[in-house]
């Protein structure tokens, strides 16, 4: 039991962060508004969770301009993907 809990990632304990990761691993990228609509959270809430995922190097972003409006595209990093997979595997093991 102990070794299983070790694999559970604190970064994904939060519901919004879990949601962000779930969405990003199955999409090449999503922009801020797409994530916001998908997860039904406020701007500030989403931004702070994205920031913390960025800090753990699980998520990267690319800013660009579309129709002269700033648009930020988020995608998951290699580390983020493997950490997320590990987290899901740990949950599945726990539920067994």
């Amino acid at each position: 039991m102990k070794h299983l809990l070790k694999d559970l990632n604190k970064a994904f304990e939060n519901k919004v962060r879990l949601g962000i990761m779930s969405a990003l691993v199955v999409n090449d990228y999503l922009d801020f508004n797409a994530l916001k609509e998908l997860l039904e959270v406020t701007d500030g809430n989403l931004a702070s969770h994205l920031k913390s995922l960025e800090k753990s190097k699980y998520v990267t972003f690319k800013k660009e301009f579309r129709d002269r409006k700033p648009n930020t595209r988020y995608s998951v990093t290699k580390e983020g993907r493997s950490a997320f997979v590990k987290h899901i595997k740990a949950i599945e093991q726990l539920l067994k």
Binding site: L18, V26, I88, E92
Partner: peptide
């Protein structure tokens, strides 16, 4: 797990 599947 349910949430993850749903969001995916």
């Amino acid at each position: 797990l349910q949430d993850i599947k749903d969001i995916m």
